Simulated scan of single mutants.
Amino acid sequence: MRRAALAAAVVTLWAAACGGPSGPAAGTTSPAPATSASRAAHVRAGFVAFGDFGTGDSAQRAVARAMRTWAGGGHRVDALVTTGDNVYPDGSPSLFGPRLDRPYRNLRRPMWITLGNHDVLNGHGGAELRHLGLPGLPYAKRLPGVQLLFLDADRPDAAQTRWLQDRLSAAGPPVRVVVFHQPAWSCSRHGSTPAVDARWVPVLERHRVTLVLNGHDHNYQRFTSAHGVTYIVTGGGGAALYPVGSGCRTPHRAAAASRHHFTAVEVTATRVTVTAVSDDGAVLDRVVLPVPRP
């Protein structure tokens, strides 16, 4: 209990420093507590997202255990979604088993990944995707009511920008989630990514995507743009943590925490609930987003 209270206090302090609340965004209210059965009955799709994890260390195993507890507690988890840096230090295929497969084998869900700079360091990114039965980046996946678009921010080029524009312009589910490694917005060691901001952010904003998931900085940060797009850095999956800074030029930052964690996303017919959960099961942040109207 003391650890959970401390985690909540850390997030509240960070949020206060950034001028925004932790927990539900302004203008939203958290739903009343529900039983596991009633919650699962209304959730159409769900997944957990995490990044910067593939160290093989105790912190990675702790986050994996927390995800198993979440899934076993009545929360719907249809897939494991990663924001990159899945296999440290260089994406070596010899480490796929201990750092990519075995920590999550008890979850028995498909793993959909993007690639981080460590995954491609020695040219093993393609092997990592093939190992999981995935196509080359960029690619798309679907869950009921949700489209997930995976990009390679190691090379934010014009071809991927056109691909993103085409997918977001086409008919599809109401909830769009875009996943890539180097963050659009961050106030930490690596910071925001200029090429992403120049090429992809205008497309994401124009189409009012529901959620953007990034990694690279080893912490949790949630931003809300002026057009209502939610950007989350979820890079606390196991690697050594980075401090969260302040005073950066970013959209409004609603919450932040330097904690090992994963980010859970649950989708109903009317709302998307995003919950950051620490390695000890404490809720670090929660926001409820509306499902866009067709």
Results as ranks from 00 to 15, higher is better:
residue 3 R to T: 14
residue 4 A to M: 04
residue 5 A to K: 13
residue 5 A to M: 11
residue 7 A to V: 10
residue 10 V to M: 14
residue 10 V to W: 10
residue 11 V to M: 03
residue 12 T to N: 11
residue 13 L to I: 08
residue 14 W to S: 12
residue 14 W to F: 12
residue 19 G to L: 01
residue 19 G to I: 01
residue 20 G to I: 05
residue 21 P to R: 12
residue 25 A to N: 02
residue 28 T to F: 03
residue 28 T to S: 12
residue 34 A to H: 13
residue 35 T to A: 10
residue 39 R to Q: 06
residue 42 H to K: 15
residue 43 V to E: 07
residue 45 A to W: 03
residue 54 G to D: 03
residue 60 Q to Y: 08
residue 62 A to M: 11
residue 67 M to V: 15
residue 69 T to R: 15
residue 70 W to G: 10
residue 75 H to T: 02
residue 77 V to D: 07
residue 80 L to N: 08
residue 80 L to A: 10
residue 81 V to M: 10
residue 81 V to H: 08
residue 81 V to E: 11
residue 86 N to K: 00
residue 87 V to E: 07
residue 92 S to P: 11
residue 92 S to W: 14
residue 101 D to H: 07
residue 106 N to R: 15
residue 108 R to H: 15
residue 108 R to W: 09
residue 109 R to N: 00
residue 112 W to N: 06
residue 113 I to R: 05
residue 113 I to A: 05
residue 116 G to Q: 05
residue 117 N to F: 02
residue 117 N to M: 00
residue 118 H to D: 09
residue 118 H to M: 07
residue 119 D to I: 00
residue 119 D to K: 01
residue 119 D to E: 06
residue 121 L to D: 15
residue 125 G to A: 05
residue 128 E to V: 00
residue 130 R to N: 07
residue 133 G to D: 12
residue 134 L to K: 06
residue 137 L to W: 03
residue 140 A to T: 08
residue 140 A to G: 08
residue 144 P to H: 03
residue 145 G to H: 02
residue 146 V to R: 01
residue 146 V to C: 04
residue 149 L to Y: 00
residue 151 L to Q: 08
residue 153 A to C: 05
residue 154 D to A: 13
residue 156 P to C: 09
residue 160 Q to Y: 03
residue 161 T to N: 14
residue 161 T to R: 15
residue 161 T to W: 11
residue 163 W to N: 13
residue 163 W to S: 13
residue 163 W to C: 10
residue 164 L to T: 08
residue 168 L to G: 12
residue 168 L to F: 02
residue 171 A to G: 11
residue 172 G to I: 05
residue 173 P to W: 03
residue 173 P to H: 02
residue 177 V to Q: 12
residue 177 V to N: 12
residue 180 F to W: 04
residue 185 W to C: 06
residue 186 S to T: 09
residue 186 S to L: 06
residue 190 H to S: 11
residue 194 P to I: 07
residue 195 A to T: 12
residue 195 A to Q: 14
residue 200 W to A: 09
residue 200 W to G: 09
residue 205 E to K: 10
residue 210 T to Q: 14
residue 212 V to L: 00
residue 218 H to L: 01
residue 221 Q to D: 05
residue 221 Q to Y: 01
residue 221 Q to C: 04
residue 221 Q to R: 01
residue 224 T to A: 09
residue 225 S to R: 06
residue 229 V to F: 03
residue 231 Y to T: 11
residue 231 Y to S: 10
residue 234 T to H: 00
residue 235 G to P: 03
residue 237 G to M: 03
residue 239 A to V: 07
residue 240 A to E: 13
residue 242 Y to A: 13
residue 243 P to D: 15
residue 244 V to G: 07
residue 248 C to Y: 05
residue 249 R to W: 11
residue 253 R to E: 02
residue 253 R to Q: 01
residue 254 A to V: 04
residue 254 A to T: 10
residue 255 A to F: 01
residue 257 A to M: 08
residue 258 S to A: 11
residue 259 R to P: 01
residue 263 T to V: 06
residue 264 A to Q: 09
residue 267 V to T: 06
residue 268 T to S: 14
residue 269 A to T: 15
residue 270 T to R: 15
residue 276 A to R: 07
residue 277 V to A: 01
residue 277 V to K: 03
residue 281 G to Q: 10
residue 281 G to D: 13
residue 283 V to I: 10
residue 283 V to H: 07
residue 283 V to N: 08
residue 286 R to S: 09
residue 289 L to S: 00
residue 290 P to M: 05
residue 290 P to A: 09
residue 291 V to Y: 00
residue 292 P to I: 06
residue 293 R to N: 12
residue 294 P to N: 11
residue 294 P to T: 08
residue 294 P to A: 11
